[in-house]
Design a protein around this nucleic acid. Structure first.
Lengths: 250, 250
DNA sequence: GTGACTTTGTGCATGCGTTCACAAGTAACC
DNA sequence: GGTTACTTGTGAACGCATGCACAAAGTCAC
């Protein structure tokens, strides 16, 4: 059978799109965000000696519906066998390649506080092809310290470290007030992908991707739903009533 | 086989299904996820002495478009003044109330490893109404230790701690293999919102919200885009070509 | 080879989220 | 009062993501 034409419409016609970091790509962004989930589920299955898996089984392991899983995988190609399922090792390799995990990614970690320490020692990075190649901090007390087998470097060495190690991804784990400065330095050094743990919005030029991880925001989202599950959703406390009255009055 | 009651992690909050008193107050999930962002921007503005802000200014500070911001805020009510903008303090209070930050949330933190330490010492929780009320671990070496002013408790005290402190939110910072067990215990104790840092999919009954924070997944998403920015997007390695040929032939 | 059975891949419909564009409302000034 | 300038709030259009349902394509037994 011939490889059916994928809609090539969005292949290269994205020039006019002003999406700074949006992926005007064949694979939808929502799908990209789930591929790592599938990959993890497949790895677990492989470790248990499973060699073939159906979309139902894999979907359950990854916590999605089977229809969604099949549609997601269909964007990568026809890697399954009808009537049988997907080959675990084969599919794992295809997804790894699609994400870009067949190569090694050198990462710079800036901000060696509590969180920085935790990240530097996190084994989940190395096992997926991410190698922390540089630890950087501005605090003189931290510089020179040995953390997770690396020596903490001063911030003014950032550009040099980025070039020396071929670092394309930077991780910011500094306090919020330092984040933008660090970000600027990373970008100046040539980093085009940033993972930001600091609770602040980063300004970056076009072509640089930023993803953020903010535990405080996640907790607040949970609190919103929690509030509506438990308490009296529409009851007003005296304080709220006063506020409302004030607002109406102007 | 029938569909089991299993439900995998997916924040769901359909208010319209059984709204008790005809609320029609459904705030879209995407909007809820941005409210904390607005809140943070407003707090920063307030600290700088700003008392009034336009949707354009606030949107820039929060990193969204002004149209999106206005639509988001319109779900909460008409809290702005046409021709003028929004009152910073007033809007701040309204959003806080909507999210549920006017009350204090007691949180249980399970897993006191590197990450657990970092979370226990994170000041961003306390400043937003989240109070870490219990630290729990299974490691005998950790139990009894003093961390961030609290004593680490054994896991079998979890239910008691939840009830004593009125804990509704649990944070899981254990290794992946321990996460589901901890999750089950939290749910059994009455927790209905869980923030999961462990790289695994949690199974929870209906009515329990799970949100996950997975740094490895975020890095992989960055890697995907990075791969397409830099390298040759369409070049095939010999290995890939062989795979493709096999697929076409097969 | 044939038929029964299994599972993928996908066209279509639906719903959610974002963007656009402008009417409605407010302030300031003459 | 009337006019001008400004900003919110929102209806409508659009695009992306999800769920459904089934034809296509494979395996297996005989």
């Amino acid at each position: 059978m011939t490889r059916s034409m994928r809609r090539t419409q969005a292949a290269r016609a994205d020039a006019s799109a002003n999406a700074p970091s949006g992926g005007a790509r064949g694979v939808p962004e929502a799908t990209v965000a789930r591929l790592p989930l599938y990959l993890r589920a497949l790895t677990t299955l492989a470790e248990h000696g499973v060699s073939t898996v159906s979309s139902d089984q894999l979907a359950e392991a990854a916590g999605v519906t089977s229809a969604k899983l099949r549609k997601d995988l269909s964007y990568l190609g026809s890697y399954g066998t009808r009537g049988v399922g997907y080959g675990v090792d084969f599919l794992r390799h295809q997804i790894s390649r699609e994400i870009g995990l067949t190569q090694d990614w050198a990462v710079a970690l800036v901000g060696i506080g509590h969180l920085g320490h935790a990240l530097a020692n996190y084994s989940g990075f190395a096992s997926r092809g991410f190698r922390v190649a540089a630890l950087v901090d501005t605090d003189p007390a931290q510089i020179g310290q040995e953390v997770a087998g690396l020596t903490v470097q001063p911030a003014d060495k950032l550009e040099e470290l980025i070039k020396r190690h071929g670092i394309a991804i930077g991780v910011i784990a500094t306090p919020a007030r330092a984040a933008q400065g660090v970000c600027d330095r990373l970008v100046a050094g040539g980093v085009t992908s940033i993972l930001n743990f600091a609770p602040t919005v980063l300004q970056v030029p076009d072509g640089v991707d930023v993803r953020k991880v903010d535990m405080s925001i996640e907790l607040q989202i949970l609190a919103y739903h929690e509030q509506r599950k438990n308490g009296a959703p529409l009851a007003l406390t005296p304080e709220q009533a006063a506020t409302l009255a004030e607002a109406v009055r102007g």
